[in-house]
Design a protein around this nucleic acid. Sequence first.
RNA 1: GGUCCCGUAGCUCAGGGGAUAGAGCAACUGCCUUCUAAGCAGUCGGUCGCACGUUCGAUUCGUGCCGGGAUCACCA
Length: 595
Amino acid sequence: MNFKEILNSPVKQAFQAVYGAEIATEKIQFQETRKEFEGDVTLTVFALIAVSKKSPEITANEIGDWLVANNEIVAKYNVVKGFLNISFTPQYWLQEFDAITSSAKFGFSPITEKSPVVMIEYPSPNTNKPLHLGHLRNIFLGSAISEILKATGNKVVHTCLYNDRGTNISKSMLAWTMAGSKDTPENTGLKGDHLVGKFYVQYSNAFKAELEQLVASGLSKEDAEKQSKLNKQVSDLTLKWENGDADVRSLWSKMNGWVYQGFEVTYQWLGIKPEKFYYESDVYNLGKETVQEGLEKGVFFRKDDGSIWIDLTADGLDEKVVLRSNGTTVYITQDIAVANEKERDFNLDKSIYVVGNEQEYHFKVLFLILKKLGRKYADNLFHLSYGMVELPSGKMKSREGTVVDADDLIQEMLSMAKEKTAEKGKTEGQSDADLEALYRIIGMGGLRYFLLKVDPKKKMLFNPAESIETEGHTGPFIQYSYARIKSLLRKGGEIQTGKVSIADDKILPKEITLILTISGFPEVLNEAANTYNPSVVANYAYELAKEFNQYYHETHISKETDVALRNFRLQLSGQVAAVIQNAMQLLGIEVPEKM
RNA sequence: GGUCCCGUAGCUCAGGGGAUAGAGCAACUGCCUUCUAAGCAGUCGGUCGCACGUUCGAUUCGUGCCGGGAUCACCA
């Protein structure tokens, strides 16, 4: 299928015939032919002149001559320095196109009984405040990777771990109680997660004020924190929760319930639906058994104060506590427990954690501990680490109110889409419901594309003005290209499917380029899956759309009078649309029939 | 300080041993009485952070340095 692989053995034969010498496969290096030269693929011959014992130019020419004479798919060649630019015959490209159109969903692999089971965990938020821009990058990455893995033949299980207990939620509970316990999502009209988040902010402000007062009275910052009454109340509340205090537990359930309801609404907007939830409140005690096991195996050790540790200095890391001196578990102990639960529940081939890069150290330690405990699945764990989203004004800080709220941002994107659509004035004949759907497709598509087009591991800048742009390297640009093809197909009339029947000399260079680009889709998909990098797919879709727009501009398609030729061009356009749609689907982005 | 990540056009980002390093935005110029101008074509813009090394060939690989970020809690 891959035309580079197709040429491997002909090139070997050429060397055998021309120079009577063997060459190793890894010496045969192909690359894409640069746009300014003619050709479909380029062989770099520098590595081969040791065998040919001739200059790069002569070697390239002799190999080129042999290929044209002896290989029926090689039409012609040209040589620039040591680069042999090879052009395939039109028949080859038409056959390639036939093969592409006859496959059900080009580039996708089926999921079968034997497909590996891959778990992917995201977004795993805390339950004390609403989702923000960082969660959006997390969710878009997680869902895009899921789709990419499914498309490459994996069964995917989506999980989400809720950090639903502890200090943070206690702060929201305390503030709510102090404020008089009247507010609910129903009577305030606030989304549950926003209501709870409001009280979290209230607590933070009150705490800050209390600290300032204590510091003003002459205490050091540390002493002030120790003497803080609010701080003490939060600890008490957390302790009561741990002791199962009925009132605290019931308030806790109520407030978490509000948050889950709020998250559910956001999830629906974002199109995600975790199949399995884990709750820290369920597992936070389970880790203790594993700590015991680790002690028995000599992996962990106990310090004088009763706390339990692992020494990872031999692995270039530090000592890490796994159980506090008061016998309670820490974050990593809980994660050990969750990893065990996941494995027990699903018997996984692979388990991916989509978590920001600030937790790289944590996951390194976690995986290492599991390995030392002898867990066989430890080698199948993978931290999909992504960079932070920064704002032009700097970092987002929830305490300073500089976060971009996910729900607000979604609403902004929708109204942007509405505004731009009205501006373009192409809405006639579409119902209100159609238009609402269109705004959602454009608004959400634009946002997703904006966050996904950047390499996940890099930190990225979120510029609000750029994010709502619909021109250039954006989601709406690609969506527009798709809609325009759909319009072409509506106007072009009946298309005959099946084998293309046009004369060889009728195929245009740009059409070959398009077939070449389309035929690269499976490779793109594989690369995205192997490197867990949706930006590869995002950039590919842009490239394809851009190339089609050039073609569209310089070629008559639905207006072509030669019937067979029109049919081919419509077929090609339709195939471009299909690949754009499939690529965008992998990113979780829908494409509109009209826009 | 240790470890990890990043430095490519004014800005946001691609590329990743090979040819004259690419897009988008911004600025400027053309193209809508023919298939959707959310488009297309063009102009302007680069010491690929710096140095040394490996190589026929380095923006790409290695080492060192400089600059930016993350992390190294009995927080999660």
